[in-house]
Design a protein around this nucleic acid. Structure first.
Lengths: 381, 381
DNA sequence: ATATCGAGTTACAACGTTTGAATAAGGGTG
DNA sequence: CACCCTTATTCAAACGTTGTAACTCGATAT
């Protein structure tokens, strides 16, 4: 072992992290051999067992860790996946994030999470970053994202595999995983109908959200099937808002509006759980009890739905699972992109996966009150 | 312009992303010149204005973006900061995260967020990843982190600048930013005392959390100062739990226990907001009204505190701000580490910053009831 | 004796960027 | 005209990895 062969390494004792060269020197083999062994490449099979052992020991002794930058540069694989959420403070997002992270991890990929806060400049910035970092894929949690559809279109160009969660997007390239909103709306309405409610109020979500219309359609279908008429007087529309947490006050406002209109109702379908919590507040102020006087159903099943008093009956989106499904799909896309490389550019047709919702019965719904029409006190008589 | 000089570039039309060489070829200057100009290096001043313009135009035309991997490799700066949270689904974390992200962004640093889920193997994994990715700094949101203190100690070794949020850590290297829990406890207790409450119950937090004891101490101090005795019968202890969201059920259980003991009380200091929401539930079940019968104070001021019915009076931690402060401090550490390089290793003494809390008055507290001692119905008579 | 082989191992050229040193062309000055 | 000083520009060597091509060195076949 000629120790003075690499004066730079032995001389420079400003203790840098060990590199392949360090391990090579320590073990007495070449850099190539070390790389082969530590990556368990097929070629490493042709190295003698003893060599492999010595290299591994040396690496362990030095606590060697490959440099991700060098590796990405050389292998053109960043091991990074960009994840864009519209607002990380929204509980809706975090569960999906957990699903994404859990699925990415065994694949050896690291998520780069970015909160774009519904701002299109942040959106641009993130796209730029994603390209610079050479992310291998992109996941966008987009249900409450108000960025113009056109900006999303930009994804298609750069050719990076991408998946959307919570929003359908007409594209030949980008797939979507989202809840079956129509079915969810149906479930919610059916639940109230089964409990005997006939006067059902509805708080429709903001118009810019795809979800709003679909849930509403599902509710209508269920009502029609049961031969129940939905009184237009009992339907209110939430205003547009860029902040999902505003749902609470919007829900309270909408409910007060309903009460003001004076039309009696015993059931209330809120756009989502935050809306429902706002409704709870408004009803509480008005002095009517849930579920004794009025039953409320939410949507999403965010963790807080369980914490409300009374806890919310809601339509579960299985958010974590949706994150998992989207990520699994993305992993497939990434693998495909890696494979064909320059061969037949098989574009792996985009698909849209509607995730089945499930009704979660909790305390905010109950049988229709027997006395009178069960309207709140303020409306009786 | 000799087009065939670089056959590799012009021949290989499997359209890769443009590199410096591409821009160089297009503009007719050297790679060095392009690099100099695009990075606005001092040396670029010596290039003619015309040259600079042409290079910039070429880069823009090609939509050139530097490759982060190559750049990190060469410059030994990853532009990455590792951010560890104990549970990304905890609203406590997400606000801090927003503060971190907002502060990191103008500094050109990208956070790598990792949810370690209170598991020590995840913790290890993250540390490994952070080293591989050569993160320039580390932020740990650690208030509800149960990893043994020893594992945290490992941070000190690797020499990466680090900051903790929400937990004090005896270290000469790692700084902490956390709420002044004692002051917070004091504020909460004083608030109830000012409202006239004399029989105040307390739900103490899990023993493993530093926060628990300190808040308790602050409460005691305030009580003593006012000459009010805290009845041990009115103090309950939350069990240990690795899941912060469990706080809700633990809070409900603790409150039921308080009611069971039969000692009348009109005020209740909960460990945190989730605990308080659990208390709300238990009191609701027991048929007593908040704040008419009993006043409740939470801690943290998570967004959901506002959404409760009634909304929670609580002690605000200014979570976003704490994230910002910790990050700013970390940026300083990083800059220092970059500067001295091999010169005097000035270790930038670790500091502990106690963030001042603030009482937020909402609906869950009110004046002590006049009738009787204001005990819940079940306890009266 | 030489050609052939395969097992074991290594040299070397990338990947895209940065940067100190080097070069080339003017433009005075002695 | 040899000198040095700007000004404008490029060279070439890294950074740590990876993977292909090539090299040794015995052993076996010709």
């Amino acid at each position: 072992m000629k120790l003075s062969v690499r004066p730079k390494l032995s001389g420079n004792n400003a203790q840098r992290r060990p590199t392949l060269a360090t391990v090579a020197e320590a073990s007495g083999f070449s850099v190539s051999a070390v790389s082969l062994v530590l990556n368990d490449r097929p070629l490493a099979r042709s190295l003698s067992a003893d060599t492999r052992k010595r290299i591994q020991q040396a690496a362990a002794a030095l606590n060697y860790r490959p440099d991700a930058a060098a590796r990405s540069l050389r292998s053109r694989r960043s091991q990074l996946v960009g994840v864009m959420v519209f607002d990380i403070a929204d509980p809706y997002c975090t569960l999906i994030l957990q699903g994404i992270q859990a699925t990415l991890q065994p694949a050896g990929l690291l998520p780069i999470i970015m909160d774009v806060h519904n701002q299109s400049d942040q959106f641009e910035r993130f796209l730029g970053l994603a390209v610079e970092r050479q992310v291998e894929g992109l996941i966008v949690v987009a249900n409450w994202l108000f960025v113009e559809i056109d900006t999303l279109r930009r994804f298609e160009r750069n050719g990076i595999p991408a998946a959307l969660v919570g929003r359908e997007f007409p594209s030949s390239v980008i797939s979507s995983v989202l809840i079956d909103n129509e079915e969810g709306g149906r479930l919610a309405m059916e639940h109230l109908l089964e409990l005997g409610h006939r006067n059902v109020a509805v708080i429709r979500g903001p118009r810019q959200l795809q979800d709003s219309d679909r849930r509403w359609r599902g509710m209508q279908i269920a009502a029609r099937a049961a031969g129940v008429r939905l009184d237009p007087q009992l339907v209110v529309q939430m205003p547009e808002s860029a902040d999902p947490l505003q749902g609470h006050v919007a829900g309270a406002d909408a409910t007060r509006e309903l009460l003001r209109r004076g039309k009696p109702f015993t059931g209330l379908l809120a756009f989502d759980d935050l809306t429902a919590s706002g409704a709870l507040r408004a009803l509480y102020e008005a002095g009517c009890r849930v579920p004794e006087d009025i039953s409320i159903v939410g949507f999403d099943d965010i963790p807080q739905a369980m914490l409300n008093t009374p806890s919310l009956t809601t339509v579960s989106q299985h958010l974590r699972q949706m994150g998992e499904v989207a990520t699994e799909h993305l992993l497939g896309l990434i693998a495909a992109a890696q494979d064909n490389g320059s061969s037949a550019a098989k574009p792996a047709k985009a698909f849209i996966r509607l995730h089945p919702p499930a009704l979660v019965r909790r305390e905010s719904t109950g049988p229709v009150p027997k006395i009178a029409v069960g309207t709140p006190k303020v409306l009786r008589g």
